[in-house]
Nucleic acid binder design. Structure first.
Lengths: 237, 237
DNA sequence: AAACGCAATTGACCCAGATCAATCCTGGCG
DNA sequence: CGCCAGGATTGATCTGGGTCAATTGCGTTT
């Protein structure tokens, strides 16, 4: 199911000045290793809404997000959807034990990834424990986030969910774009609802309520935290 | 907060005939490595309800569960609890990036763990990529389970949650105790509720409902699946 | 065997959030 | 510029599961 709009650059890039050089898996490699590594990955672009891989697909590649945002989700047979996370630049996707992806991933807006064929990547890792350690670190970080999200899904009210989401999302963007009380939300209300285990109406109503109380301002493509302290109180962190 | 009832065996064990030798982290070590590894861990016993470690505690040890069941959970400031998983023999606990545990763990019934001091264990791993790879595998498996659980918490009804839980728990015990339609439930109803994001009343009512329909039978310390197919249908797997 | 303690069950009622159903933007296009 | 489509908002109503409150069942102590 390779989408037609995907474009691949034959080779117009170098890892050494990649945007995610410092934070992604490749941060564990030295300059010499990086030159070798460069041949393994190729940049691939996806446009908004395109699927990068689907749950249950055989895993043929790993992906390193370079630019943009992706939604990672699982579907129930009847169509209910749970977004298990949003991937941002520096995130590494595709690791699994079964040989099949255990969630689907698609682009929210334009996305650039660094794609690695599974086998050569596996071979490259083989004698580079540093890289393995880095991948393990990323997995452990994900796991910690996943557990936090379980608490949110299982034990928080709608207001708390929305407030936690805004703070969490701002926090993640902090590392990428620097601190700001203006939080861009590239994903749809439906995406937010499916991430928080709510309906789109509840998300919308909660935003409106927060805005009426002067806590946030809903702006085009995002929200602005007028009273961050209030939001933090609501999140019951 | 070392509990008084904890007992440590000076050395009455050998790794080579450990119950979890084949499935735990140590499955990645050969006989020679195992002998060296043996000196790193010590068996520690916990009795029912004792806390092995708490969220936010500085991580001083890693733990390999040998016997028994543990509940892993996070608390909100106001006391709401979310159980993020149950640990069984073979599970490895304590990995994190922050240097602090990101959840609490306590014993459900008698528990035996193999405890490793963080620093020596870290040193041992250093030049044994096989062990690191094994730890990574366990982390990836956990991550996959965590994502499945997010779907359950965010998008399933109470009936589906309970049915999925029974099947999932049976599935996990399968590897340890062999196949059976009688599912022991060592944890309390409250534990089940906090795992599923429900209240104790809802869990109890759902069990009763299933029993009235002849789908399960509630027995002392567990349940019996009278109609496993029916339970699977309810789980909407 | 009576009495206690604690988990589990059951019942009655309530409410947060879902569902159903209109609008209301807003941006793209003829 | 006016029209259209898809996302977002808002309103009205419903309900699954929570809350509150007994009651039951059992294992332990005396």
């Amino acid at each position: 199911m390779k989408p037609s709009v995907v474009t691949t650059e034959p080779n117009g890039h170098v890892c050494s000045d990649c945007a995610v050089r410092g934070s992604a898996v490749c941060s564990s490699l030295d300059a010499a290793e990086l030159r070798e590594f460069e041949h393994l990955g190729r940049r691939v672009h996806f446009s908004s809404g395109e699927t990068v891989f689907s749950e249950e697909d055989i895993t043929t590649s790993f992906y390193n997000v370079l630019e943009g945002v992706m939604r990672l989700y699982k579907l129930l047979p009847d169509g209910r959807r749970q977004i298990v996370g949003f991937a941002l630049p520096g995130d590494f996707l595709g690791m699994n034990l079964s040989g099949r992806h255990n969630f689907s991933a698609d682009a929210i807006g334009m996305v650039t990834v660094c794609q690695f064929a599974k086998a050569p990547f596996g071979r490259f890792i083989e004698d580079r424990p540093q890289l393995l350690r880095r991948i393990n670190e990323l997995a452990i970080r994900e796991l910690s986030q996943a557990r936090d999200h379980m608490v949110l899904l299982g034990r928080r009210s709608a207001d708390e969910k929305v407030a936690s989401f805004l703070l969490g999302w701002r926090e993640r963007l902090l590392a990428l774009k620097g601190p700001s009380d203006t939080v861009p939300l590239p994903m749809s209300r439906q995406d937010i609802a499916d991430y928080l285990g709510l309906t789109i109406e509840t998300v919308s109503r909660t935003f409106t309520k927060l805005e009426r109380h002067g806590t946030i301002e809903i702006i085009h493509g995002g929200i602005s935290l007028l009273d961050p302290a209030r939001v933090e109180a609501l999140a019951a962190a």
